[in-house]
Simulated assay, not measured.
Amino acid sequence: MLRVFRVETEFLEEQIVNHDGDIEPTASVLNGFVAIACYCRFLLYGFEENEVELQIGNRKMLRKGLISQEIAETFITVPKDFCCPISLDLMRDPVIISTGQTYDRSSISRWMEEGHCTCPKTGQMLMNTRLVPNRALRNLIVQWCTARGIPYDPPENSDSSVEAFAAAMPSKAAIEANRATATLLIHQLARGSQGAKSVAARGIRLLAKTGRENRAFIAESGAIPHLSKLLSSTNPVAQENSVTAILNLSIHDKNKSKIMNEKGCLGSIVEVLRFGLTTEARENAAATLFSLSAVHDYKKRISDEEGAVEALAVLLRAGTRRGKKDAVTALFNLSTHTENCFENDRSRCSHRTSWGSGK
């Protein structure tokens, strides 16, 4: 019964969060249902699961249940190009920056106000801070919304802060259920058995995969110190879930400082990058460094961490396609700090990675 419950609810979760965007506003009710179902699952069945089942769930993510598949077929996903690369939300006011990338005005304005002078997506230096309205994309978004009966009120001018898609925001029931679930999960991370901690880390990983509210609350509730300790676990499932949970939490800008300021956390992330027990754990550690390096002041600290640059270089040569992409982007991000010099690391890892040899 527990396995059926988990497969059905987690499949619905995956349908909501794995589409590179949000779902239509009418699905907010489903969001609430899934949130409450997940809370009930942990409340009723606890945190002790068979390790084999947990690994299967981790790798498959997940087989389609009959009920959940029937509901999932009613989803309408937002096209990836309509979502802001920073917030991952549908863009209300798309604008083009000097590198040619498009972002939602509110997100990229906040990025620039924080003192950043690079493109968040490419890492290129910004030639200027001009924001050019992407009217063609905005018109496509309007057409797409109109065809599906989704309310959309495009801004009349660049200073508009229209709260479009308010209906797509999580319901109060969903928010409260997710908060209750996060509280249960963090309690297990702090005091549960090793098996329970692994289950809880996976729950945090999924819960933090979407929604700024979830990411903010999970971090504010004290999950990061416990996830940091779990990074050194000899259990590959627990390690993979903990580093991926930290990666998901790092998407929320305010959480980056919490991760960087947690004693030993950065070093543990680098250790997973160097010696992680699974390929996914190592590559998600690289993705975490890429996410954290979006903050200019952290680039020097990351590159100064022993073995970080060398491990990224190794991953650049031997990782999967996704791993190589995260590694090269992280390295580029780090290189944009004027005080970073990779000569020593380059010489150390040259024979391992054929750095600069063109091989």
Rank of each mutant, 00 (worst) to 15 (best):
L12M: 09
G195H: 06
S335A: 13
K258Q: 10
E343W: 14
A167C: 02
K60E: 12
K325L: 07
I150A: 06
V52P: 01
S198M: 15
L227M: 00
I218N: 01
Q69L: 14
S193V: 04
S242C: 07
L185C: 01
S193Y: 09
A173E: 05
K324Q: 10
L54Q: 11
R130P: 02
R321F: 13
P25V: 09
D153N: 15
G149H: 09
S228T: 08
G358K: 13
K64R: 14
K172M: 09
W355L: 12
A166W: 08
E13M: 12
G123A: 02
R110T: 07
S107V: 03
T181Y: 00
S171N: 04
E48D: 14
G149C: 04
W144F: 08
L185F: 05
I36H: 04
T74C: 05
G319L: 02
H226N: 05
R135P: 00
G211I: 07
A208R: 02
E213I: 04
M1E: 13
P25F: 06
G65P: 04
V4T: 12
L43H: 13
N50G: 13
K60G: 07
L249Y: 08
A168H: 03
V95C: 03
E339L: 11
V272Y: 05
R92D: 02
S228Y: 02
P79Y: 04
S347G: 01
I23P: 01
R59C: 10
P133Q: 05
K299Q: 13
H187S: 11
S293F: 08
A182T: 02
I175S: 00
N214R: 04
V7T: 15
D20L: 09
R215K: 14
E262S: 09
I175Q: 06
T244H: 07
T279R: 11
P25L: 04
E51T: 14
Q194N: 09
E240D: 12
A201D: 03
E310F: 10
G222N: 01
V295K: 06
S354C: 11
N344I: 12
I96K: 11
L247C: 05
L131A: 07
N157H: 04
I96V: 14
L43S: 15
G203C: 08
R202T: 01
T320P: 02
D304H: 06
V199A: 08
Q101T: 02
E10T: 12
Q143Y: 08
V29Q: 13
L140V: 10
G46N: 04
K121T: 15
A313D: 00
E114K: 12
D253V: 15
S28D: 03
D104Y: 06
E213G: 04
Y152C: 07
E10G: 11
A245T: 06
E163T: 06
V309I: 15
H351Q: 09
C265L: 06
N139E: 14
I36Y: 07
L331V: 10
Q55Y: 06
S158F: 05
K325A: 14
T146W: 08
R352K: 13
